[in-house]
Design a protein around this nucleic acid. Structure first.
Length: 191
DNA sequence: TAGCTGATTGACT
DNA sequence: GTCAATCAGCTAA
């Protein structure tokens, strides 16, 4: 299965966030294969978007303004990593936060990394859980998502999923913008 | 150098 | 529903 082409990411973050739903995120970290279907995303824009790290995390500017298809990983609240895909052509800031996954392959590995025997539906439901299940760390910051140990593959299966849209959650600014997308009938979205 | 903030989670009342 | 854990990178001094 080929990964999504660079061109996929060279579009507005809003469009990338929506089209990423249903795609498969694949991690080969540690020699183990772990993959899941993306069921929840959020779009973050440039400085005009008050919630975007492009506006108040200058250390990340280089990535935000670079070409799409690059991973942006950061640590927040000291304990949790968050995985983003940079979107838009060079010079255009924007990224997509991947919030939740439906485990497809390697559930045993994910469960072991999570330290739980829990049901699959909780393995990657939430940005922090997702990165832990796939062993994504700050080392992946700046990694190429079109080739490497961490890639995203096109959606498989019949038709397009039913997509819901609403305000983003867990943030303290610009909470009124409808930039959060998720698969409407999926039980794997975060709370 | 000290202090602050945050796109979260899980445990507890 | 509330609340602490915990750290990278910025800001102020």
């Amino acid at each position: 299965m080929p990964s999504l082409p660079r061109a996929f990411y060279l579009r507005p973050a809003r469009a990338v966030a929506r089209d990423l739903l249903g795609c498969i995120l694949v991690s080969r970290h540690g020699g183990a294969l772990a993959a899941g279907r993306i069921v929840e995303t959020e779009a973050y824009l440039g400085p005009e978007d008050g919630a975007s790290h492009a506006a108040f995390r200058p250390g990340s500017h280089r990535l935000f303004y670079g070409p799409g298809g690059i991973a942006y990983v950061f640590l927040n609240y000291g304990t949790h990593h968050c995985l983003n895909a940079i979107a838009g052509p060079p010079g255009t800031p924007g990224c997509v936060l991947i919030r939740a996954l439906e485990p497809v392959t390697g559930q045993a590995v994910m469960a072991r990394r999570r330290g739980v025997t829990a049901a699959a539906r909780r393995l990657a439901s939430g940005p922090g859980n997702l990165t832990r299940a796939l062993a994504v760390t700050l080392r992946d910051n700046g990694a190429d998502l079109t080739r490497g140990p961490l890639v995203i593959e096109p959606a498989s299966g019949p038709g397009r999923p039913r997509i819901a849209r609403g305000p983003r959650i867990g943030i303290t600014r610009s909470t009124d913008r409808p930039l959060r997308f998720w698969i409407a009938d999926s039980p794997f979205v975060s709370r």
